[in-house]
Amino acid sequence: MEQQQKRTAGTAACEPQIWLNSVNKKNKAELLEWLESANVKLVQINGQRTYGGPPPGWVGDAPPFGSEIFIGNLPQEVYEHVLIPLFQRVGKLYEFRLMMTFSGLNRGFAYARYPTKRVADLAIAHLNGHEIQPGFKIVVCRSTEKSELKLDGLPGFVDKASLERILGGMTTGVRAVYLYASPTSNTKNMAVVKYNSHREAALAKKSLCEGVQVLYGCPFTVDWLQQSMKQKLHAGTLPKPNSYLPQVCQYDNVKEEKFAPNAVQHLHLFCEKLKLGQPVYQIKFLGHGTFGWLRFWYKVVIPGHDVPFTGYSWLVGDKLIPTEKYQQAKEMVALRILKELGLIVE
Rank of each mutant, 00 (worst) to 15 (best):
R113C: 15
P55S: 01
N46G: 11
L149Q: 10
L105C: 07
N128H: 07
L86P: 12
H130P: 07
R142H: 08
R118F: 13
V82I: 14
G66A: 03
Q48Y: 08
G135S: 06
T116Y: 00
A120G: 10
G104R: 04
G60M: 05
L122G: 13
E95V: 11
C141M: 05
K146D: 15
A110R: 07
G108N: 07
F65H: 10
N46C: 09
V119C: 06
R118K: 13
R118A: 15
Y111S: 14
I138G: 05
A110V: 14
E80P: 11
W58S: 05
P115E: 14
A110P: 14
V140F: 02
P85D: 02
I69E: 05
G53L: 01
I124E: 01
G135H: 08
R97P: 11
G53N: 08
A123T: 10
V139C: 09
V90C: 02
N46R: 11
A62E: 13
E131I: 08
V82K: 02
G52C: 13
R107P: 12
A112C: 15
P55W: 00
P75H: 06
R142I: 03
Q48M: 13
L86R: 02
N46V: 13
M100G: 07
P75V: 09
S67R: 05
F109A: 03
S103K: 09
A112N: 09
L105A: 07
Q133M: 12
G66R: 02
D152P: 05
L86Y: 01
L105G: 02
L151Q: 03
A123M: 11
F136G: 11
L122Y: 09
H130V: 12
K137H: 14
V78A: 11
V78S: 08
H130Q: 03
P134W: 00
R89L: 10
T50D: 06
F96A: 12
I138H: 00
T144C: 06
T101H: 02
T101E: 10
P75I: 09
F87C: 04
G47N: 13
I71W: 07
F65E: 15
W58N: 04
F102W: 09
P85W: 00
H81W: 06
S147E: 02
V140W: 03
R89M: 10
I124H: 00
N73L: 15
T116G: 03
P134T: 07
I69P: 06
L149A: 04
F65K: 11
G104Y: 02
F70K: 05
V119F: 00
